[in-house]
Design a protein around this nucleic acid. Structure first.
Length: 117
DNA sequence: CTAATGACGCTAC
DNA sequence: CGTAGCGCCATTA
């Protein structure tokens, strides 16, 4: 499970964590976006997040299409991620995928319920 | 070094 | 919308 990365890659993993920590609540990013930001492949991002430490909002990282790619490997974590996202105000459709407007890269911000839900 | 796998991404069918 | 193929970075056999 928890693969311990080589010293060199560990440094990259930290870069991923640092970037993920900058993701504001109610917003999400795709593995590809994060990878492009830190300069690593999308797969490397998922790999790094596979052993991410506490304090890292890994739930804010979803597939480029909005799907929770983790669901395939860990349905349990998928439920956790969905729960955490919804708790931050991110809404998912019936297919358990985050809507495009919740992506940080999208100019159009979140619906801003403002209703306090 | 090559092959296979993984919280990926995109294109093609 | 679904699956399949190739490319991608990093790890492991």
């Amino acid at each position: 499970m928890n693969r311990e990365p080589a010293d060199a890659s560990e440094r990259q993993a930290e870069a991923v964590y640092a970037f993920v920590r900058t993701i504001p609540p109610g917003r999400v990013l795709s593995y590809g976006e994060v990878g492009q930001a830190v300069g690593v492949g999308a797969r490397a991002v998922g790999w790094a997040l596979s052993f991410c430490p506490e304090g890292v909002p890994w739930q804010r990282v979803v597939g480029a299409d909005g799907y929770l790619r983790i669901a395939k490997r860990s349905p349990h974590l998928k439920a956790v991620q969905k729960k955490l996202l919804e708790d931050e105000g991110v809404m998912l459709d019936d297919r358990d995928r985050v809507e495009r407007r919740f992506f940080l890269a999208e100019e159009d911000g979140p619906p801003q319920t403002t209703l306090g839900l």
